[in-house]
Design a protein around this nucleic acid. Structure first.
Length: 864
RNA sequence: GCCGGAGUGGUGGAAUGGUAGACACAAGGGACUUAAAAUCCCUCGCGCAGAAACGCGCGUGACGGUUCGAGUCCGUCCUCCGGCACCA
């Protein structure tokens, strides 16, 4: 402490005590952790940040939640691993390089340095010796190592594919990185909101689809995950079980169109077939037909359209008859073949059978083009008529009709029976489809992990040998933001000798999607300095899986699915026993704040407004009224941000921590409000005054046996119970903090002896939430050693017991009175006293009650 | 359209089927102070009644139902938020 301010021991001054304790913890290596088979392990993980420059309130909330969990579990006797690191590759570093003429490396290192000190100011209990940064060669070497392992196993492969191309970022995006935000359903870049285009490129993929079934099935075995996250993952994997069926061409019975359906029970009702405009058989079937010219024009027009626009929800269905016919394999009827703009080549076989009677989309299409409709599932009332339908009949109830030997079956029975028939008659096969696509990992970018592949003129695609890893990024590459990958311009990087034949070859210049980095970082924390393997399997056997993972809901699909996939790959490489990386998942809500706008000057910082709540706020530039906007996620663009650094400077880290925990349950959005921060600060000030005014030269005398002392002891144990249960049950930090406030109120409400145990307990219970003040006051009470190493207090049922209890009396379910009775009084006597109560007597009016219900220790309910 | 989640005071939010509104914020009143800040105390869902006290009625998005008793369980609906969506 360099401050020369006179020490005023009676004033709570977080700015002076917080750094002292942070240094103390660091010097004592309080949070360093190693494997310890004697203690139960607890792996508490928070999503590591992208080093964008400064931490924001979302980070604060995330890390404070994680810190309370870690500190609490540690006090409960667990050996807690609580690491932190940096998701350090990514586009902003390149943008910064263009803007500020700093290399991505320099910019990133600078940011990490700054943000690390910011995090340290929050007093977070990280084992900093395990810090990792994904942009360091000793980290990304292992991205490359995993790539090679996957390449060997056929899990990494290259193919030409139409990819999402962001013209602004000049890079490829994964499907998951294309978002649709408004009703037009147009694909936008997840990072910059640009309109995404299609482009054909040769790309590297990870074969996540090989694990689709396991990723889906394991969703049922993740009870510690929020249901909505599992739902999103299930939707994303998008499994559908059905059959592929061949519809032979009428002109050539040896050729057939293969369709995919999940509703084979309606096969007899298929009155036409529709192909995707991209379907490879289109040209074959229209050859020589009078419709061929019109069809070609149609196909050309549709395929030119952006796929995102074409598949938008409100896109008009459009189709054209090909002039060709197919044979319905069940009815043997000739049915027309159409081409439709709504049929996707990328799903199933790119061809569908159409059953207008039992599929709403097919129904609308058939109505539009006058194609016949045939009812093959009759409703229980028997009222459906093929030519009178006004909508498709899609209910599960009903029986098959006009379906040959399957008539009379329920749709569910028929789905199975007809599938069997299709297989046995060799009309097709059972088939399961997934919406999940393989994960395109190629990025035409500099600041990422180089893909360890070499292209040789003679040997073709050659893997970089393991002993040549890592393929490092060349440090001085000009980054312009234009054209393709900057690595292509670096001839030293690009031109290499082939590892196989020694001949001239060139390197792959694409780098990996940064989601690769974050798919396994939780393994790297276990042995961050290991240089012979990505991590130590022995450590993983001890620590994995992560007991509690905490982060934003925005990663519900992308990051969490990739991390699950990677874990399964790592397991199949024999490196871990874990099937799933994260046992429990807590998705914390966003940090929001109200927004203000001036019609002239746009968004305004709330802190800059002039005026007052009562008189109304005005724009500081032009004094126009500031219009209050919606409460939205804090963001720079809307200017509704609170800078954590400012907050800590004003109130201290403990207040910042306490408020972000108290204002809302963790999974809900938190609305920031300065007055609430004041409240949290006031509470800590009160605790400070209570303890500092209480602390005497020596320990204060113990229990004195009075009723007041017993009452305080009771509240103490009640609070231990409440806080413990709130933390154990879903981390209800807000109610736990409320219990501590009540506890404080109870202690001060009854001045007198016997506060010792209460105050001591208050500090221990407070320490995970506000560790600095707890440490300081603990010390001032005369304790040696850290409050953090105190065991978590236990409550006893005996201490909770009271001599007298309150019994509530209800008449016909309405509250009519209450009586105090000695604890342990028997039911009969309690009922008797309840009826004898003056007020209750008035209600009874001398009549005997019909019924009396007694809830033990709680209430008497009298029915008249 | 489908699948989740949520609707409680002026506000954020509490309530294993058992006293709705804990805790906090805001607001109002008071004490202390020359004054202010800080701090402390009181009031604080709506209505009725009353000098006061003891009270009474209503009240958790709407309407029904189950129950001695429903914010909580069931049914129907409304609104908002999130996800998915021409996926065959």
């Amino acid at each position: 402490m360099k401050e020369t301010v006179a020490q005023q021991p009676d004033v709570y001054n977080p700015q002076s005590i917080e750094p002292v304790w942070q240094q103390q913890w660091e010097a004592a290596k309080t949070f360093r952790v190693t494997e310890d088979p004697k203690r139960p392990k607890y792996y508490c993980l928070v999503m590591f940040p992208y080093p964008s420059g400064r931490i924001h309130m979302g980070h604060v909330r995330n890390y404070v939640i994680g810190d309370v969990v870690a500190r609490y579990k540690s006090m409960r006797g667990h050996n807690v691993l609580h690491p932190m690191g940096w998701d350090a590759f990514g586009l902003p570093a390149e943008n910064a390089a263009i803007e500020h003429k700093k290399t991505p490396q320099f910019w990133t290192d600078e940011n990490i340095l700054y943000m690390r000190t910011q995090l340290k100011r929050l007093g977070l209990s990280y084992d900093w010796e395990r810090e990792v940064a994904t942009c360091k060669p000793d980290y990304y070497k292992w991205n490359q190592w995993f790539f090679l392992k996957m390449y060997e196993r056929g899990l990494a492969y290259k193919k030409m594919s139409a990819v999402n191309w962001c013209p602004s970022c000049e890079t490829v995006l994964a499907n998951e990185q294309v978002i649709t935000r408004d009703v037009t359903n147009i694909g936008l870049c997840w990072r910059c909101d640009s309109h995404v285009e299609k482009k054909e490129l040769d790309q590297w993929f990870y074969k996540i689809t090989a694990y689709a079934e396991e990723l889906l099935a394991e969703c049922d075995r993740l009870p510690g995950w929020p249901e909505r996250v599992l739902t999103m993952q299930r939707n994303w994997i998008g499994k559908s079980v059905g059959v592929e069926v061949d519809f032979p061409l009428a002109d050539d019975k040896n050729r057939a169109i293969r369709i995919f359906t999940t509703r084979q029970d309606t096969l007899f009702g298929a009155t036409f077939v529709t192909l995707s405009p991209e379907h490879p058989m289109v040209e074959e079937i229209i050859r020589g037909k009078k419709e061929s010219a019109a069809v070609r024009t149609f196909v050309e027009r549709i395929t030119k359209q952006d796929i995102n626009i074409r598949t938008a929800q409100n896109m008009e269905k459009e189709g054209i008859f090909t002039g060709a016919h197919a044979i319905n394999p069940m009815t043997k009827e000739r049915i027309p073949i159409w081409i439709g703009n709504f049929v996707l080549m990328g799903y199933g076989t790119g061809a569908i059978m159409c059953v207008p009677a039992h599929d709403q989309r097919d129904f609308e299409f058939a109505k539009m083009y006058n194609i016949p409709t045939r009812v093959v599932i009759q409703n229980p009332e028997g009222t459906l008529k093929s030519d009178e339908l006004t909508a498709a009949y899609t209910d599960e109830a009903g029986k098959l009709v006009e379906s040959g030997k399957f008539s009379g079956l329920s749709p569910n029975e028929a789905i199975e029976k007809i599938a069997e028939f299709i297989v046995s008659e060799k009309l097709g096969a059972r088939k399961t489809n997934y919406k999940l696509r393989d994960w395109g990992i190629s990025r035409q970018r500099y600041w990422g992990t180089p893909i360890p592949i070499i292209y040789c003129e003679r040997c073709g695609t050659v893997a970089v040998p393991y002993d040549e890893l890592p393929v490092t990024l060349p440090p001085d590459v000009p980054i312009t933001g234009k054209g393709g990958s900057p690595l292509q311009a670096d001839k030293n990087f690009l031109n290499v000798k082939c590892p196989k034949c020694g001949g001239p070859a060139r390197r792959e210049t694409d780098t990996m999607d940064t989601f690769v980095d974050s798919s396994w970082y939780f393994f790297r924390y276990l042995s961050p300095k290991m240089d012979t393997a990505p991590f130590d399997t022995k450590s993983a056997d001890y620590w994995m899986p992560v007991d509690q993972y905490i982060g934003g809901i925005e990663h519900a699909v992308l990051h969490l699915l990739y991390a699950r996939f990677f874990t399964k790959v790592v397991r199949d490489l024999g490196l871990t026993k874990a099937d799933e990386p994260f046992t429990n998942l807590l998705t914390q809500g966003m940090v929001c704040m109200e927004t203000y706008r001036c019609e002239e000057h746009g968004w305004l910082f709330p802190g800059d407004l002039i005026g007052s709540e009562k008189e109304g706020w005005h724009c500081p530039h032009c004094n126009r009224p500031a219009v209050r906007g919606r409460v939205e996620k804090m963001s720079k663009s809307k200017k509704n941000i609170v800078d954590p650094e400012q907050l800590i400077a004003t109130y201290g880290a403990d207040t910042a921590r306490l408020f972000s925990l108290f204002a809302a349950p963790p999974e809900k959005d938190l609305e920031w409000n300065d007055a609430g921060v004041e409240g949290a600060s006031r509470f800590l000030n009160r605790v400070w005054r209570l303890v500092t005014s209480h602390a005497g030269p020596g320990p204060v005398s113990g229990t004195d046996g009075t009723e007041r002392t017993a009452a305080l002891r009771r509240v103490t144990h009640q609070t231990i119970k409440k806080v413990t249960e709130d933390l154990d049950r879903n981390f209800q930090f807000n109610t736990a903090v409320a219990a501590l406030m009540e506890f404080y109120n109870a202690i001060t409400a009854q001045p007198g002896d016997g506060r010792d145990e209460a105050i001591k307990t208050l500090l221990i219970l407070l320490s995970p939430f506000a560790p600095h003040i707890a440490e300081e006051l603990w010390k001032r009470l005369g304790h040696t050693g850290s409050v953090l190493t105190q065991p978590w207090p236990r409550w006893t049922e005996a201490a909770l017991a009271t001599d007298e209890i309150t019994i509530v009396i209800q008449i016909n379910g309405k509250l009519r009175g209450q009586i105090r009775v000695p604890a342990g009084l028997d039911e009969k006597e309690i009922q008797h006293r309840a009826m004898a109560d003056g007020k209750i007597k008035d209600w009874l009016k001398g009549q005997p009650p019909k019924k009396v219900i007694y809830v033990k220790g709680k209430l008497v309910s009298i029915v008249l």
